[in-house]
């Protein structure tokens, strides 16, 4: 098990922090960038995953399994969120015949 520990610690924690920051920023820019609702949902998934990666990296470097259990719960919530989000998307396509986010502007201002 000792070589596993040294192998995990070969990559510094800062690298994982920077990587997940980059992924989160790409997801955030994508949510603001695109008009297609399904791609906005995918960018949300990307942001979820960057947070998951960060939690796992901290958990592995601190040798605390609670972080990985949190990641498991985040995956559960993401699955439920995608189910409801895609149902809303199907309903939106059926009602306004488009998946353009700019069509849904009645709650704006």
């Amino acid at each position: 098990m000792n070589d596993v520990i040294t192998a995990i610690r070969t990559v510094p924690l800062e690298h994982y922090v920077v990587l997940s920051f980059i992924l989160f920023s790409i997801g955030m820019a994508g949510v603001l960038f695109r008009r297609n609702t399904i791609i906005i949902l995918m960018c949300l998934e990307l942001m979820f995953n960057s947070v998951n990666l960060l939690l796992t990296a901290f958990s592995a470097h601190h040798s605390d399994p609670s972080g990985q259990v949190f990641v498991f719960f985040i995956m559960l919530v993401a699955a439920a969120e995608v189910t409801v989000g895609l149902a809303i998307l199907v309903m939106m396509k059926r009602n306004v015949d488009s998946v353009d986010i700019n069509q849904l502007n009645r709650l704006k201002w």
Partner: peptide, 14 residues
Amino acid sequence: IGIATPGGYDGGIG
């Protein structure tokens, strides 16, 4: 990020 990693380390927590 200034993390003091705790002493007892276990590689098998995943």
